[in-house]
Design a protein around this nucleic acid. Structure first.
Length: 639
RNA sequence: GCUCUUGUAGCUCAGUGGUAGAGCACUCCCUUGGUAAGGGAGAGGCCACGCGUUCAAUCCGCGUCAAGAGCACCA
């Protein structure tokens, strides 16, 4: 007798071992048809899996996250099947599930073209329609190696050969195609209905840049057509919001060949920058940080002490003067330690918090550069806190609160917090790491927030908290970080005098909230699709005349708004009012003042608001003072 | 850095082995028009850079630089 416990805790008795498919069929024909796999005592299996003894079973369908993963994984195999049909001499390698889809890497004598992709996708559709059964069999490892070697699939053979010799491996077959795979897979290709191949690109065999470059085909797959359409729509939306495109359209910045990875900020882009920087400056001022400024270029001897010359040289721009080597700073922390060291510090001075909008340069690999999101020259809201080990938790609690407030002010409400824990390669004793990691956990616990932990992802000198913000189309960006560092203060000779007159080395906390301002502004642009809220908008108000009679009145209004501290422009051009409105609408100006004879005679302004519903919406005509109050309220609310 | 793709007017893009075209933007003229493009004329390019092949190269080949996608990288 086999007793199967279903998720609703009901128990079904079977008089002999029973497959997942049979259990599904015993529940209902609909479920039998929908079943993609099963979860037996928490382990995902195929529908053909035979349950030999009492177990808990959940039937997996496309309504479960596990089911969707199975669909994606099986679609990756379908892709490989189609490629082998069309290009028999291509070799298969691996094909995992990734976020929103899957990929499969092939070794082939030439790159696949877009035409190839279309042909492969068509073939996949045909193979899916034929509803070919997918079957699983198990072979001893050595037999499997021989099998794939015999097929000329050297990469597969290599993968299997790295599995321990005494283990069996599972093979999945559909039609003439057999692939090594841990599984599980959907029972037949007909379950795969919604998929699309996205792009092809190179990728290294086993992810190592020393290895051969393979052809990677990316695809997306979903349970329902509408889900795929929503996903494709999101991608389109992301493309429309591309900060590089909007940066050009709104005349915010440009980049050119002579300065790869570095930004030329135009007046409007720099206006945004100034808003962000000035805002972050008040954050420093209001939270116990002292702003400082350190040199851009420091001598090699300092970088040798800090360890950068040895470990980070490839990423630093170096220069030389009168036979001495220098490096342009890639980060601000060594400079901040110099300021700390410039005086004899007491434990009473701690925690000592320094902040800097320091310009840093890193020689990033050319292929890593991306618009203003990944650059070689950048500025961070970089701060360092010198404190004692006992103070770490309190400082992290305060920082956590501050970071969340800043994200909220910028309109990011959905923040995921993670702690990156000790990596394999690290310095410091396990005891120190225990204390540091627990200090971060305690801080987040005390802050009453939830977090996830990332084992092995910490920096070599200490663990860190990471802040990931979700943007308006659901993408996640890591910006803020709080890192505990037990190493650099000692290396660079930072000390303070404790309450027994003994010299101690402080702990240093590296922290940033927005991170690189370049990148953060890129994120802001994409998050708002260029329509920045009034407090950040480079031009907050444009005042325009309907005919030239009101030119003088426009100038008066503009002068009044300027005096009130707003970023405002006049548009007195000899163009129709609808033409001007269109232009400033495309420029995403939040408020457009249309000033004609009506307004001039009444001494009022009519404001057309950007964020109104439909094509365009006006505020009621009001006095200039009333409009100034309205604008001030908008800006104060950071809407 | 690696693989593939790309580089033509300020912008978005056509195009050809015989030194180039459109729309928008720009300048001038007409127009003074009330909520997303009024009309006309004009100016504007060493076709990324260098070296080859050719009678002739923006186009073909090689190299360099830069950009894009992905990979690797992000201490």
């Amino acid at each position: 007798m086999v007793a199967i416990t279903l998720p609703d805790q009901s128990v079904r008795q079977f008089d002999k071992p029973v497959s997942v498919a049979e259990v599904a069929a015993s529940i209902g024909a609909g479920l039998a048809k929908a079943a993609l796999g099963g979860k037996v005592d928490g382990k995902l299996v195929d529908t053909s899996f035979v349950i030999e003894r009492d177990a808990a079973l959940a039937i997996v369908t496309d309504k479960d996250a596990d089911g969707l993963d199975m669909i994606r994984h099986s679609t990756a195999h379908l892709l490989a099947y189609a490629v082998k049909e069309l290009f028999p001499d291509a070799q298969v390698t691996i094909g995992p599930v990734i976020e929103n889809g899957f990929y499969y890497d092939f070794s082939y004598k030439r790159p696949f073209t877009p035409d190839d992709l279309a042909a492969i996708e068509k073939k996949m559709g045909e193979l899916a329609k034929r509803d070919i059964p997918v079957s699983r069999k198990v072979l001893p490892r050595d037999e499997a190696v021989a099998y794939f070697k015999g097929l000329g699939e050297d990469y597969k053979a290599e993968i299997i050969a790295s599995i321990p010799a005494n283990e069996d491996v599972s093979l999945y077959s559909e039609g003439d195609f057999t692939d090594l795979c841990r599984g599980p897979h959907v029972p037949s290709t007909g379950k795969l209905k919604v998929f699309k191949l996205m792009k092809v690109a190179g990728a290294y065999w086993r992810g190592d840049s020393k290895n051969e470059m393979l052809q990677r085909i990316y695809g997306t797959a979903w349970a329902k057509k509408e889900e795929q359409e929503a996903y494709l729509h999101m991608l389109e939306e992301a493309e429309k919001r591309d900060h590089r495109k909007i940066g050009k359209q709104l005349d915010l910045f440009h980049m050119q060949d002579e300065a790869p990875g570095m930004v030329f900020w135009h007046p409007k882009g720099w206006a945004i920058w100034q808003q962000v920087e000035q805002y972050m400056r008040t954050v420093y001022q209001d939270n116990g940080y002292q702003e400082i400024r350190c040199p851009q270029i420091l001598a090699r001897s300092l970088w040798e002490k800090s360890g950068h010359w040895e470990n980070y040289k490839d990423n630093m721009f170096t220069t030389e003067s009168e036979k001495h080597d220098f490096a342009i700073k890639p980060m601000n922390c060594p400079g901040h330690i110099q300021v700390f060291n410039s005086d004899l510090r007491s434990y009473r001075d701690l925690p000592l918090r320094y902040g800097e909008f320091g310009s840093c340069h890193r020689n990033e690999a050319s292929g890593a550069l991306h618009g203003i999101m990944r650059v070689r020259g950048f500025v961070q809201d970089d701060g360092h806190i010198f404190c004692t080990e006992e103070q770490i938790t309190d400082e992290c609690v305060a920082f956590n609160q501050l970071a969340l407030k800043v994200y909220d002010d910028f309109g990011f409400k959905d923040i995921a917090i993670k702690i990156a824990l000790r990596p394999e390669k690290r310095i410091g004793s396990d005891d120190t790491w225990d204390r540091a990691e627990n200090a971060l956990r305690d801080a987040l616990k005390a802050s009453n927030v939830e977090w996830t932990e990332l084992p092995g992802e910490g920096a070599f000198y200490g663990p860190k908290i990471e802040y990931h913000m979700k943007d308006s189309i659901g993408r996640s960006w890591q910006c803020g970080t709080m890192q505990v560092d037990f190493s650099m203060p000692g290396r660079l000779g930072a000390e303070y005098v404790d309450d027994h007159s003994a010299r101690q080395t402080p702990v240093m906390l590296h922290r940033a909230i927005v991170g690189s301002l370049e990148r953060f502004i890129g994120i802001l642009i994409e998050n708002h699709a260029g329509s920045l809220p009034a407090w950040l908008a480079p031009v907050q108000v444009v005042a325009m005349n309907v005919t030239e009679h009101q030119a003088e009145y426009v100038n008066q209004v503009v002068a009044g708004l300027k005096a009130a501290g707003f970023r405002v422009q006049a548009d007195l051009r000899n163009e129709k009012i609808s033409y001007k409105i269109r232009e400033h609408s495309l420029q995403k100006v939040p408020f457009q003042l249309v000033l004609g004879d009506k307004e001039m005679q009444a001494g009022t302004v009519t404001a057309r608001i950007r964020d109104g519903k439909g094509g365009g919406e006006n505020l009621p005509a009001m006095s200039l003072d009333a409009f100034i109050s309205h604008l001030k309220a908008e800006i104060a609310a950071k809407r």
